[in-house]
Design a protein around this nucleic acid. Structure first.
Lengths: 339, 339
DNA sequence: ATTCGTACTGTAAGCGCTTACATTGATTCC
DNA sequence: GGAATCAATGTAAGCGCTTACAGTACGAAT
């Protein structure tokens, strides 16, 4: 009766249709180079057997996979979600499949993921931020895998990037805070190690302080992980000092939301008792009470343009052109004048 | 001088180390079956050349990839993030890599993603919910790919699943709402088509109504997409009727947050003027004001157990055992007695 | 009728890896 | 001392696909 039915191969299709494997392959890849009659016969066999090409074999023989890999620091909050969604949509339109991994903000895991993706034949990679071991870039170059850096932009670094200037953006926001009369500012930054976005944002605040001729001591800086609860804990730390800050600037919206929550728990009114700011302008920023003053980042645009650029790099082998996008301030309820 | 340097293969390593390809392969896969001296020589060559195994070739020859694929309806909000993170962590511990795709709630795209992942050699698949074309399951069975359904559990369906009873969970919440005296209830459901979770949750509310001997007209049901803004729009629709509801039950927390927001914009106090409930208990539920009454789902536990179960299915080829987890109510500020 | 060109199709050589099986020495045992 | 055993390594046959190259048949041009 039935053989132990294993999954059909191109060979099976060829036999069933009474043609050579080459013809079947051509049917799949260049239908117009095959006579209509033959093609119909082959397609019939394909349907009958439920044949699906083996991707690994195809990739090995053709040296292309139409797969793009992306490694983001986290899926747990929405920071990268929107941009990535746009990235995927654009890729899909161009016939590419996106595979995503998350590194939990750990360089070690990111490296593993990069290797995993490259080994699986990714034609190109999207990475968040510049800051990683040079050996990683060396490896990627040796493997000839185009890499696009996103969510950051700097003239210093050699990698092709599509992003925005984290430092300058934060400086603008900090200037606004200073303009409102705040002179003692708590800063809740993300972990700086291996995260240039966090570094740049922090630097942006320092720059504003310096260019306004204020002392570095105006700032009380805490570094913590990007979680709501961490933001809450850090808020306590930043407030439990002698010179209580009148404003707390956070490294992103997630931290800011944590701070906002803790402020409420402590019975503080925002912004009357203390102002709080975020960064990224994720959906959350407009949902919390009070709504959050933050830096708006054009996530979807960044995702789309990154897709276009990366595909272009993959297909034409060039280094691709970097592109700087503009962020903008979103002044909302959580920021007010210093009391 | 330098040849156009292409990426090194196992063969290059073998030559460079002066051994056969078999020995190199063994070095990689079963180091203890190779003499220490030889092994060192081979590893030296590997480092020198910067060799990395070609995944496609390896998969093709070994028929294993140690890759698990997951397709979730969306990355845009945090519904699946936490569970998936746990899923990934557990997989990582067991030596598997997770590749994620999102289908944007579109069955068509989900099918493509499934094929893409299978073609790329995924050893197993995690899918959300049961409801999909039978041909998909047939295809997966033919390809011999173990599939685990998550985020849902039903005794009816044949697929192995790790999840919870969406219907019964929602019934419990609805009962609570009824107990508080609500008799006119607005329902903001997710789109039911191709989404058994949405269907089950809606059914859960209907069941509660029926078992309390109340007329079906107590309910005013709106179907919409799972976005905050959709929740807001639907809230308007559900409130702009003659018999204004005293409670609005939402298909998930995202919709509920939208409703909450719009309620505030309309000047309604929650829960004094209207109660609002959600489902999932994502982080957001505790952050909004007022905090959201919802159904807590053990996301992390579900993720971990799903990983264990799926790996077991992949490695032992069995159908695996389904597992029902328990949800629980989280009564918070947004639910109060009917006025 | 011969010669080409054209349009299809087939042949077979890889792509980079794993693994069953064969081979080779060295060691052990009686 | 020779047979048996064993650890280490090599040989080579695929895995499923693509593609350069080589036919083959047939109508058109000469």
């Amino acid at each position: 009766m039935n053989e132990a039915r294993s999954i059909p191969t191109l060979d099976d299709v060829a036999k069933s249709a009474g043609v050579s494997t080459a013809t079947v392959s051509r049917c799949l890849n260049f239908p117009d180079r095959v006579a209509k009659r033959t093609r119909d016969r082959v397609n019939g066999a394909i349907d009958k057997l439920g044949y699906v090409p083996n991707f690994g074999a195809r990739a090995m023989a053709a040296k292309r996979t139409f797969t793009i890999g992306a490694i983001i620091p986290t899926m747990e909050n929405a920071i990268f979600a929107r941009g990535l969604q746009a990235f995927q949509e654009e890729l899909h339109e161009r016939g590419y499949t996106l595979l995503v991994s998350s590194s939990a903000y750990q360089p070690q895991i990111e490296q593993e993921q990069i290797r995993a993706l490259v080994a699986r034949g990714a034609d190109g990679l999207l990475l968040i931020g510049y800051d990683r071991d040079p050996s990683v870039y060396a490896y990627l170059e040796r493997q000839n895998i185009p890499v696009l850096v996103a969510w950051a932009f700097s003239k210093q670094d050699p990698q092709t990037a599509i992003g925005f200037d984290n430092c300058a953006s934060m400086t603008r926001l900090a200037q606004k805070v200073l303009d409102l009369g705040h002179r003692r500012i708590g800063v809740i930054s993300g972990m700086n190690k291996g995260n240039d976005r966090a570094q740049q944002r922090l630097q942006g605040i320092k720059d504003a302080i310096a260019s306004n001729g204020l002392p570095a001591e105006s700032l009380n800086i805490i570094e913590t992980t990007y979680e709501i609860e961490s933001g809450a804990v850090a808020f306590d730390q930043v407030m439990d000092v002698d010179a209580v800050p009148t404003a707390v600037m956070c490294g992103n919206d997630v931290l800011a939301v944590g701070a906002l929550q803790r402020a409420r728990e402590r019975g503080l009114r925002v912004p009357d008792d203390v102002s709080i700011t975020g960064f990224d302008d994720i959906e959350l920023a407009r949902i919390v009470t009070p709504t959050l003053t933050t830096v708006h980042v054009p996530h979807r645009e960044m995702g789309r343009k990154a897709a276009v650029a990366l595909v272009e790099m993959v297909e034409n082998g060039g280094a691709g052109a970097s592109l700087e996008l503009q962020s903008s301030l979103r002044i909302r309820e959580s920021l007010g004048p210093a009391k």
